[in-house]
């Protein structure tokens, strides 16, 4: 194997690998809505919305959380659009899940117009403000595994 031959092989391998990475990156950018959908997108999906397992993002409407044993109902709001969510799952929602918090509901959209979630995740804001003195802040109780079970 002479020297120029090695060079060509290395060049071909480099082009293949860099090309694959670029392809994955570009298709990834196009599919940028894949991690979650907004309420508006969910309601604009038509029949597809009922057949897919989805993540929906929104803000928890203040006062809408109703707990009932392992069952919970709440309303997500996003830019004036409203989505009723019914949650039945094993894990309690994280402590950061409360009024006005950003949340993700994971599950299926029912034909009854209610989103049936099997998992709730909170999403954090990118702004950190100090707690007001005397105000109730979230405690770190969810760190203990006993509570998660």
């Amino acid at each position: 194997m002479n020297k120029s031959n090695v060079g060509i092989r290395v060049a071909i391998a480099t082009i293949l690998i860099v090309g694959t990475i670029l392809y994955l990156a570009i298709t990834g950018v196009r599919a940028n809505k894949s991690y979650y959908v907004t309420i508006q997108e969910l309601q604009g999906m038509g029949n597809h919305a009922y057949t897919r397992h989805l993540r929906v993002a929104g803000n928890v409407k203040p006062g809408s959380i109703e707990r009932n044993g392992g069952h919970m109902q709440f309303v997500l709001v996003e830019q004036g659009r409203v989505l009723h969510v019914s949650y039945v799952g094993d894990d309690p929602p994280p402590d950061t899940f409360k009024d006005n918090a950003q949340a993700l509901a994971i599950g299926m959209y029912g034909r009854d117009g209610i989103f049936h979630a099997t998992q709730i995740q909170a999403k954090c804001a990118s702004k950190y403000a100090p707690a007001k003195p005397g105000a109730q802040t979230t405690q770190t109780a969810s760190m203990s595994p006993a509570k998660a079970s």
């Binding site: 954090c124 950190y128 707690a131 802040t137 979230t138």
Partner: peptide
């Protein structure tokens, strides 16, 4: 550092 408003003490891991 002040305790964060929504996350509480956990935010210190930041």
């Amino acid at each position: 550092a002040p305790t964060e408003a929504t996350m509480g003490e956990v935010q210190r891991i930041f």
